[in-house]
Write a protein that binds this DNA or RNA. Structure first.
Lengths: 199, 199
DNA sequence: GTCTATAGTCGGATAGAC
DNA sequence: GTCTATCCGACTATAGAC
């Protein structure tokens, strides 16, 4: 395809269908047959555009990772104070009960065992973590955040809280524990009486 | 089995093999055949002791949940200060790269869709969260923890950080981000200069 | 490019001998 | 209680017609 325009074509529909199924059922739980049914295509179409299940999943995972990275950058790249940007990241619109389309894949042994499939997952999660660390570091420098905190560690805590929040929400069948976890973290991050350790 | 003694029997081996496979591959990724191979049993044995895959998984999930609850209670039930007990919970021995044998199941659509399979997962996660909330509430009452914090929220944050830490660790193939997330959370929980909001 | 037909393997479960 | 034999459908892929 040298003409990149015009794409509600079959290839496109196959990738989108795969993304949805990967999100819901993971790699092991997603069959080519199910993808074809969802995309409204036949066997031949899929094997014409992709080498097989793995190749199709690779395209889908790459796109999901890209999308997640863009969404994170959209809320973290702003101009406000560090706390506000972290808050925006934590409170951004999410389909909590569906879980994270990227984080979910880490529980798939076949994804984790395959370096190429795992790479987009690792990269985007690292990137978000790094971006959060920058925001936190800037916040500490400007005195917007209190205490002797390691930016990399806090960034990991923030991402982990979100990823773990999905787990709690799915376990209970309700978004409530996700929201609780996020509010708890925000309370811990909230600038206290700025008496730092200088007392 | 009215004589509860004597159990390295087949039934026992089947449950243990199922627990291990469920942990590694999840419900959809675990086949009866793989369980039988791991347990060194034949088809007949399994269908004699259990009604089928689902029934076997139910037994395995219940046991894993029980074990997790006991491990959590062991570190949280101590006598020390709240911070120390939370720290003990966060730092307890874990096979980080294998993920959480219980939390992992929340990503399995067939487990989540089946109320009986989901119940042990929900219950134990709720129980740990409740137990942590008690510890935190006591810590706040005794002034061991600072600030206007909601015990239920902080408890959710603590459990979420652990569950999400597994995700980050598996994504990178290293336990490091799990440890970072935990240390970040401990730094946030650490009693500051106890100047609370009374200034 | 897309379709149907076909192949070989595995998944989950049953039947019946021992 | 445990075993082997067997069933049927699903999974992943290939072949070849259109």
């Amino acid at each position: 395809m040298y003409s990149a325009i015009m794409n509600t074509d079959t290839s496109e529909r196959l990738v989108e269908a795969t993304r949805a199924l990967l999100w819901e059922r993971g790699y092991v739980g997603t069959s080519p047959k199910a993808v074809l049914r969802a995309a409204g295509a036949g066997q031949g179409s899929m094997y014409h555009h992709f080498a097989g299940k793995r190749d199709l999943a690779l395209a889908a995972i790459r796109r999901s990772a890209e999308e997640l990275g863009a969404a994170a950058e959209a809320v973290l790249g702003g101009e406000g104070p560090a706390y506000d940007r972290i808050e925006a990241y934590l409170l951004r619109e999410r389909d909590v009960l569906r879980g994270c389309p990227v984080g979910r894949l880490t529980m798939d042994p076949e994804v984790i065992a395959d370096p190429e499939l795992r790479a987009p997952v690792e990269e985007v999660l690292d990137r978000v973590r790094g971006r959060l660390a920058e925001v936190i570091r800037a916040g500490l420098d400007r005195g917007e955040l209190s205490g002797p905190l390691d930016p990399e560690e806090i960034a990991a805590t923030v991402v982990a809280t979100v990823q773990g929040g999905y787990v709690l929400a799915r376990a209970t069948g309700s978004p409530t524990p996700f929201d609780s976890a996020v509010r708890g973290l925000l309370a811990l991050l909230a600038p206290r009486a700025t008496t730092t350790a200088s007392a």
